[in-house]
């Protein structure tokens, strides 16, 4: 355990999580679905360069993607929209606001089912690759 490496990853992970749930809803509100597509390039790309290309998020074992920080940030803190007409407003609420985790549990469970299947397919694809 290297504390400085963890602190660096914490800051750059928070950058990804905060960036996604401010820029994405704002871009969506401003430019509709094309804004949603562009938002991925604007924030995911930059956060990937920092976290995974430059390697600020430590990764020596099974891959831990910055996506973990992104998911958790919205779950806890919700989302924020820079609306073209109304200015900075709240988009969604998180656990920190008292939102009920129970409402999201079914979605979380089914997402994990799909992702586990994908993990297996990736593992199988890599094995037949080599």
């Amino acid at each position: 355990m290297n504390l400085r490496r963890i602190l660096t990853g914490m800051c750059t992970g928070a950058f990804a999580g905060f960036g996604v749930f401010t820029i994405w809803p704002s871009s969506l509100a401003r430019w509709n679905w094309l804004g949603g597509w562009l938002a991925a390039g604007i924030i995911i790309t930059t956060a990937w360069l920092v976290n995974h290309y430059a390697g600020a998020m430590p990764n020596r074992g099974a891959w831990v993607d910055m996506a973990l920080s992104i998911w958790l940030a919205a779950l806890l803190g919700g989302s924020v929209v820079l609306d073209p007409a109304k200015g900075l407003v709240r988009g969604g609420y998180g656990l920190l606001h008292g939102a009920n985790l129970g409402g999201a549990l079914m979605t979380i469970f089914l997402q994990l089912v799909g992702a586990t299947l994908a993990g297996y397919l990736l593992y199988a694809a890599r094995r037949s690759d080599v």
Binding site: W71, G78, G92, A115
Partner: peptide, 8 residues
């Protein structure tokens, strides 16, 4: 909320 993003 809470939002469960596809990032998970």
């Amino acid at each position: 909320g809470p939002w469960s993003d596809m990032a998970l």
